[in-house]
Structures are given as structure tokens and as C-alpha cells.
């Protein structure tokens, strides 16, 4: 039987891309995007940039190191299913916290 194996340079290029994005995310962490953005969205811009970079890195690992690129269609079904449940977890819990006052956390030490 023939075995499909990606060439060595694919792995090296993916690794180099991951290194590039790692250095990039550290670099942009020191930039305050709120200074360069319209009022209101500035305070979430840094998070949006950092999470977009992390997501890009994760997609590279999943597609190439975890061989989802070139796998049968059932693997993406499992991954998308997981992500949908993560969205449900975050959206429903987030909606609960956003729509009712949160009681202040008071640990024993401060009493």
C-alpha cells in the first residue's frame, strides 16, 4: 500500500511560520492599539489581535502537524462539533453573567 507522507520542508515551513507568529504576538502586545483606534473598540483590539494570531497558529498545527489537511471528512466534523459546543458554553454562560449583577468575590483573608 502507498503511504502519503508530506515532504520534510512542509514541516520546516510550518515551524518557521509558527515562530514568526510567536515573535509577532509578543511584539504587538507592547503596542496599545487603543491609542490608534476609534473610541469604544480600542480596549478590545489588543485582545482581538492576540487571539487572531493564536487562532492562526492553532490552525497551522491542526492542519499540518495533526494531518487534518488530507484527512477524511469525519475529522473536521468532530472538530467543528467541539467548537460549536465551546461557543454554546461561552455564549450561554456569558449571557448569564452579562445580564445579572455579579456578587463581589471576598476571600477569607480580607475579612
Amino acid at each position: 500500500m502507498s503511504v502519503h507522507v508530506a515532504p520534510l520542508k512542509t514541516y520546516i515551513y510550518v515551524f518557521l511560520a509558527l515562530m514568526f507568529f510567536t515573535v509577532l504576538t509578543v511584539g504587538v502586545a507592547f503596542v496599545n492599539f487603543a491609542h490608534h483606534a476609534p473610541k469604544g473598540i480600542g480596549n478590545v483590539l489588543n485582545d482581538a489581535v492576540a487571539m487572531s494570531i493564536a487562532l492562526t497558529k492553532a490552525v497551522l498545527v491542526v492542519a499540518f502537524f495533526m494531518h487534518v489537511k488530507g484527512s477524511t471528512k469525519i475529522t473536521p466534523v468532530v472538530i467543528w462539533g467541539t467548537l460549536i459546543f465551546m461557543v454554546i458554553l461561552f455564549v450561554f454562560t456569558g449571557a448569564d453573567y452579562l445580564t445579572r449583577p455579579m456578587t463581589t468575590f471576598v476571600p477569607v483573608m480580607s475579612q
Binding site: T25, V26, F30, A34, M66
Partner: peptide
Amino acid sequence: WHFVDIIWIFLFPLLYLFGRHH
């Protein structure tokens, strides 16, 4: 092993990098 790597890819910016720009 790659899954554990991906968890760290998200932990690093969330824990270490957040707040740096302040």
C-alpha cells in the same frame, strides 16, 4: 502532544501578554 501545544499557544497570550500594553 500537538493538542497540548495548542493549549499553550492560547495560554501564552492570555496569561503573559495581556496587560502588557497598559
